[in-house]
Design a binder for these strands. Structure first.
Lengths: 102, 102
DNA sequence: TTATATATATCGGATATCCTATATAGATAA
DNA sequence: TTATCTATATAGGATATCCGATATATATAA
């Protein structure tokens, strides 16, 4: 149910990996923590079926390491390689969206 | 050919419509002009098969109007509705990526 | 006129992205 | 022990997104 001023546009898919790298560049977090933070930011919380495959994919790429494991809870951290990848992506992001944030 | 520090990550798909609305919120432009600007920003210029369907989709949604037509060149403009949609999306963008820039 | 360059248009499909549904395992409470 | 909650895991599939190939029309140059 969308009112007249609330036209939907631009669902901003494709940014999930970037956002995960960004969040982990601030501090190590576990999956649910990341999902919570994304929920606050985007207004929509990614489901387990979204967040865990994304984490696995980033881990397989060598961007994340499992820093600590408490029971079932896995705390992820950026690897040096992940940090580099994020910095490259951030530069691109900055250039691409220059001027959007007034 | 990617060197070690240039690990690819996060291709930022899904932002094309948003970027088009952003560019047109600055000034009316035609398709190739938009493609040029995106090429400069992202480092990759969208092909005709990418940009024109995107423009059509935004036009069909009522976000764009054809301001002027010179020969084959169509200059697009945001409609009031497109402006509203962009502002909503921008608010979401800002909240989502808070802290990423610097 | 003919050739070339530019701008737009669209189909069909490859791929990426994400979600639903489901499952498993550890922690904790009853 | 049993039940419940939380965190993680993954298959399968729906959808979105984009690109290559191709076509058309206009303007311009030779």
């Amino acid at each position: 149910m969308t009112r007249d001023g609330d036209e939907e546009c631009c669902d901003m898919r494709g940014m999930l990996g970037f956002l995960i790298l960004f969040l982990l560049s601030k501090k190590p977090m576990h999956g649910q923590e990341i999902a919570d933070e994304l929920g606050k930011r985007r207004g929509e919380r990614p489901s387990p079926g979204t967040i865990y495959p994304a984490l696995k994919s980033l881990k397989d790429a060598g961007f994340l390491s499992e820093e600590e494991k408490i029971g079932k809870t896995i705390i992820y951290n950026l690897t040096p390689r992940g940090m580099k990848a994020f910095n490259v992506a951030k530069r691109r992001f900055t250039k691409t969206f220059l001027g959007v944030l007034s």
